[in-house]
C-alpha cells in the first residue's frame, strides 16, 4: 500500500428509492424507543433517533456506550426487546427482507468467510443479494480496484492484514448499491491512504443521494467527515443534530467530553512524573 492513491472511479450509484414520496421525505433511518437488555445489564435504554436521508451521520460514544448494540438492532442483526426500526419508513423487524435490501452493513467484530479469496468473498456477497452474475463480476472488479485490493484479489481473506480485512468487508457491504450504509468502526486499522480513499467513496456516495452512518470514537474524524452527529453513552442518546449544532461553538471533542463526563483533572499518578 505504498503507491499513491489511484484515481478513484465513481462508486456504484444507489438504486432509486422504490417508493419515492416527494411530499414528506421519510428519514433514511428512524429508531423509535429501542431497548435491549442482556441479562441484568441494560445495553440500550430507549434510543430515539432520526437519520435524515442524504446525510453523513456520525454515531459517537465512549467504549461500552451501546453503539454496536444499537447499530446491530438497526441493521437486523439483533432483535430489540422493544422499539421499532424504520428504514425509509418501512419497519425493519416487520419485513426484514424488504428493509435489508436497502441496507449495506459493515458490522464490527464479526468474522468473514475468510477461507474465500477477496474476489470470492465480494462475489459471494453480491450473489447472496440475488444480483445477476455480470453485474456482480463488474462491480467486484471496480470495488477491488477502488479499495486497492486488486493485487490481493486471489489471496485468501484469512491471510489479509486487519486493514485489508476491513476494506474487503466494506466492499461486500457496498456491492448491492444500498440506499443506506451502516458502518461500525470502518476506519479501525485502515492505513491513512486507504482511509482517504474510503472517505472519498463515501462522500461521493452521499453526494448522489445515499446516506451513511458511521460509528467511531475518533472525534476529529467525525467532525471533519460528517454533517450530522449523535452522542450516546450508557445506552441513552445525549445529543443529536447537525455537527455544528451539537458542538455549539467548541470542538466536537470538548463537547463530547462535557456531555459524557468522566474526565479527570488534577494531580493523578504523581509518581509517574520523571522529574
Amino acid at each position: 500500500m505504498t503507491h499513491p492513491a489511484a484515481p478513484v472511479p465513481p462508486p456504484p450509484a444507489p438504486d432509486p428509492a422504490p417508493d419515492p414520496d416527494p411530499s414528506t421525505p421519510a428519514p433514511a433511518l428512524a429508531l423509535r424507543g429501542l431497548w435491549k437488555r442482556f441479562g441484568d445489564k441494560v445495553a440500550v435504554a430507549g434510543i430515539d433517533l432520526d437519520v435524515p436521508a442524504g446525510s453523513f451521520f456520525g454515531l459517537v460514544g465512549p467504549n461500552g456506550a451501546g453503539k454496536t448494540t444499537t447499530l446491530s438492532m438497526a441493521t437486523g442483526l439483533l432483535r430489540p426487546d422493544a422499539g421499532e426500526v424504520l428504514v425509509q419508513g418501512r419497519s425493519l423487524w416487520a419485513d426484514p427482507t424488504a428493509a435489508k435490501r436497502l441496507l449495506g452493513v459493515l458490522p464490527d467484530g464479526v468474522r468473514l468467510f475468510d477461507r474465500l479469496t477477496g474476489a470470492q468473498l465480494i462475489t459471494y456477497a453480491g450473489l447472496l443479494r440475488g444480483m445477476d452474475r455480470d453485474t456482480v463480476a463488474e462491480r467486484t472488479q471496480d470495488l477491488l480496484a477502488t479499495l486497492d485490493l486488486a493485487a490481493d484479489a486471489d489471496t485468501l481473506v484469512v491471510d489479509y492484514s486487519a486493514g485489508m480485512t476491513k476494506k474487503v468487508a466494506l466492499a461486500a457491504a457496498l456491492i448491492h448499491a444500498p440506499r443506506l450504509l451502516v458502518l461500525d468502526e470502518p476506519f479501525e486499522a485502515v492505513d491513512p491512504v486507504s482511509a482517504a480513499n474510503i472517505r472519498e467513496i463515501l462522500h461521493a456516495y452521499v453526494a448522489t443521494g445515499g446516506t451513511v452512518i458511521v460509528s467511531s470514537h475518533v472525534m476529529d474524524l467525525v467532525q471533519r467527515m460528517c454533517d450530522h452527529v449523535a452522542v450516546v453513552a450508557g445506552g441513552r442518546l445525549l445529543a443529536a443534530g447537525t455537527v455544528d449544532d451539537v458542538r455549539a461553538g467548541s470542538t466536537l471533542e470538548e463537547r463530547f467530553v462535557d456531555l459524557v463526563g468522566g474526565r479527570r483533572t488534577g494531580e493523578g499518578l504523581a509518581w509517574l512524573r520523571t522529574s
Partner: peptide, 19 residues
Amino acid sequence: RSASRSRGLGAFGRVPAGP
C-alpha cells in the same frame, strides 16, 4: 505469513446465479 492464493473464482465461477 505465507499467504495462500487461489486463482479465479473457483466454484463461484461455475454455479448459476442466485443465493
